[in-house]
Amino acid sequence: MQGFAANLVLGAEGGLLIGDMIVQLVFFLGLLALLGKFAWGPLMKMMKDREDYVANEINTAEKSREEAHRMQREASDELKATRQDAQKIIEDARKTAGEQERDILDSARAEAERLKESARQEIEQEKEKAVQALKDQVAGMSVMIASKVIEKELSEKDQEALINQYINEAGEKR
């Protein structure tokens, strides 16, 4: 027996065969199930994975960018602070150096003053000593000269007069 629509025009080749229909149904549903399991499922999962991956990567990149930005800002702040520190240190050093210079100059000046003073004192002392020595010598020489003069030039007559004078003086005082 042919299919029920065998005589229809569109069934010119055998019409609507129930068997074909059942086979088609079974094949198609089977294909649907198998492809769903072995092809579309994994493929769609992969596409979903990629979507997630890309979204994730974008998020991470965004975060890294922000992080980098933040770090850059920190670094530049740090750099600025360091520069200021260095400036301060240099300034301090300059100031200290200036003070030291002044100190050294002062102390050198004081030392020089002191040296000058002590030299002057020494000179004074030496001078005094020399004057003293001169005085002593002059005195000695005076005595010597005096004694020599007295020895040589005191004549008899003068001696007499002198003696008389001493005697007179001595008598008057008593």
């Binding site: 027996m1 042919q2 299919g3 029920f4 080749e13 055998g14 065969l17 129930i18 068997g19 074909d20 059942i22 086979v23 088609q24 094949f27 198609f28 089977g30 294909l31």
Partner: peptide
């Protein structure tokens, strides 16, 4: 009685699937 197959169709459905 009513179960007829066009074997060509069956073959081609199988091949296509």
């Amino acid at each position: 009685g009513w179960l007829d197959f066009n074997l060509s169709n069956v073959l081609m459905m199988f091949v296509a699937s």
